[in-house]
Amino acid sequence: MLKLLRFNARTWFFLGFLGCVFLLAMGAYFQFIDGLDPCPLCISQRIAILLTGLVFFSAAIHNPGQAGVTAYAVSGAVTALCGAAISTRHVWIQHLPADKVPECGPGLEYVLQNFPLFETVKLMLSGTGDCAKVDWTMLGLSMPAWTMIAFLMLAILSLLQIWNYKETVR
């Protein structure tokens, strides 16, 4: 059974890249079609998806040997796990009691124009009261929870390529 799923690392990295494209497309759909405005943590998660996708795309294009596959696999896992950490914080904020939710801050556009870059990044990673709002659920899980699951799957997919490369070379 596993032999049927044993594509080369290049193919798996490309499939991971397509998964990232799908996640970004879903974010764009929810924002532009359904009218759900992303909060700072949502935008941070999208950036992490983009970075993970770029690592996967680079690996697929490069088609490296064992050392390169290992480097790309670790890089892809690190970017995906950073995204999972952001998603975890987002889910945590969504589950805080109403009196513990951070204050809603100014809009991201205002912050980008009027605050130093360090303060903007701090806001994007710490979240605001806007992040506590749950606009969408599926099977009882919010969008950040599903994004966290996707990040964890991408990290696993990435790290499995180290093992996969050794197996496909034999």
Rank of each mutant, 00 (worst) to 15 (best):
F118R: 13
I33G: 03
T120R: 15
G68I: 00
G16L: 05
V121L: 15
A48K: 04
C42W: 04
A85G: 07
L54Q: 09
M26R: 05
I93R: 02
L41E: 04
T88A: 14
I61P: 07
P116A: 06
Q31E: 11
V101Y: 03
T52A: 10
E109Y: 04
T70H: 01
F22M: 10
L50S: 10
K100I: 03
L117E: 15
S44N: 15
Q31M: 08
P106Y: 07
P102T: 08
G19K: 01
V121Y: 15
H90I: 01
T52V: 04
L125H: 11
I47E: 15
H95D: 12
G35N: 04
F115I: 03
Q113C: 08
V55C: 06
L112P: 11
T79Y: 02
G105T: 13
I93Q: 02
F32I: 08
R89V: 08
R89T: 13
V101F: 02
Q113L: 09
A77V: 06
F56H: 08
I61W: 10
C104D: 11
N114M: 12
I47G: 15
D34V: 00
Q94I: 09
G76P: 15
P116Y: 09
F118W: 09
C39L: 10
T70P: 00
L81F: 03
A85R: 04
Y110V: 08
G107H: 07
A84C: 03
A59S: 07
A28D: 06
A59F: 00
Y110L: 10
A80D: 06
K100P: 06
I49C: 07
F17C: 10
G19V: 04
L96T: 04
P106S: 12
P102K: 04
F56A: 10
F14N: 10
E119Y: 07
G35H: 02
T70Q: 01
A85C: 08
L54K: 12
